[in-house]
């Protein structure tokens, strides 16, 4: 039997085993569009003449979970990496347009690239702990930004590990190599590491796809919790996940943004034919 999540008019049924979502859904009072810190204007991106992102215009609502969905190769990861300009290191890259964060253009020559990246925590598909201890993984970013005070670092490490619910599990082996943790723990560690530099955004690229169901549920819970303080943008291939946690959804196809809007709108009443087809699983 095949059932498509969006055909379920009530999301409450999905919340059965995801009870943490309940209160969220209930007090979801529409999207605060008036307040958007991240705006994409006429973004075009080329890699070696290949037109990867085509005329992208977007507004990402603040302090919400925004999911980017779309078939493989449509440019989701590229868009995400453009937000923190990680894409810069790609051979043959060229871009036009602008991305405004707090009204400063991140492509502007005067904008300091490390400052932008500091604002955007990245969570990759496979957890990627740096080759150092658990403690140093979290302290790494702060140290790179010049924080030397041991006490302060200790405090940050504890705080962030608690924020991702890892503290109890690792507090006795903070100086063990981070690679010794389980995959799920590693992903939470990576999240904590990103949070430690006090970002405003969290960018997650299929951050749960390499994890077991329990761990990915754990991460999802965290996203929902964290959106009080952060703007979360995540790329996902699991529509169910988008359905569970998204407030806002962006559908991309072949490098173009086909449709963007609130989750309810997109899932229950897509305006574009392509979106509908994608959600029905006509192509993936």
């Amino acid at each position: 039997m095949k059932s498509y999540p969006y055909q379920n008019p009530s999301r409450a049924t999905w919340a059965e085993d995801y009870s943490f979502l309940n209160n969220d859904i209930n007090n979801d009072e529409g999207l605060a569009f008036n307040k958007s810190y991240l705006k994409v204007k006429d973004l075009n991106l080329y890699i070696h003449k290949a037109h990867i992102l085509k005329n992208v215009n977007l507004e990402i609502p603040d302090k919400k979970v925004t999911c980017i969905i779309g078939p493989s190769g449509c440019g989701k990861s590229t868009l995400l990496k453009t937000f923190n300009r990680l894409i810069d290191d790609t051979e043959g890259i060229k871009y036009e347009g602008s991305i405004l964060v707090d009204d400063t253009d991140i492509f502007d020559k005067k904008t300091e690239i490390t400052d932008i990246r500091k604002k955007m925590g990245l969570l990759s598909q496979r957890p990627c702990p740096l080759p150092m201890s658990i403690y140093d993984n979290i302290a790494f970013g702060c140290k790179m930004h010049g924080e030397r005070n041991r006490k302060k670092l200790n405090q940050i490490v504890e705080e962030q590990l608690k924020a991702v619910g890892l503290w109890e599990e690792v507090k006795n082996r903070l100086h063990a190599p981070a690679s010794k943790l389980s995959i799920g723990q590693q992903q939470r560690l990576c999240l904590a590491r990103g949070l430690a530099v006090e970002p405003e955004f969290i960018l997650a690229d299929e951050a749960t796809s390499a994890l077991d169901p329990i761990s990915s549920k754990h991460i999802e819970e965290l996203f929902v919790k964290l959106k009080q303080d952060y703007t979360i943008i995540l790329v996902t291939h699991t529509l169910r996940q988008a359905l569970r946690i998204a407030d806002h959804v962006i559908f991309m196809y072949l490098g173009e943004v086909i449709e963007a809007g609130s989750a309810d709108e997109i899932f229950n009443n897509p305006k574009q034919e392509l979106t509908r087809k994608y959600l029905e699983g006509a192509f993936s």
Partner: peptide, 19 residues
Amino acid sequence: EFRDASLSLGATKWQTSKH
């Protein structure tokens, strides 16, 4: 990914290379 992880925390390229 290792470079991405470090760079996205705001480390410079040299800091990434070194650490």
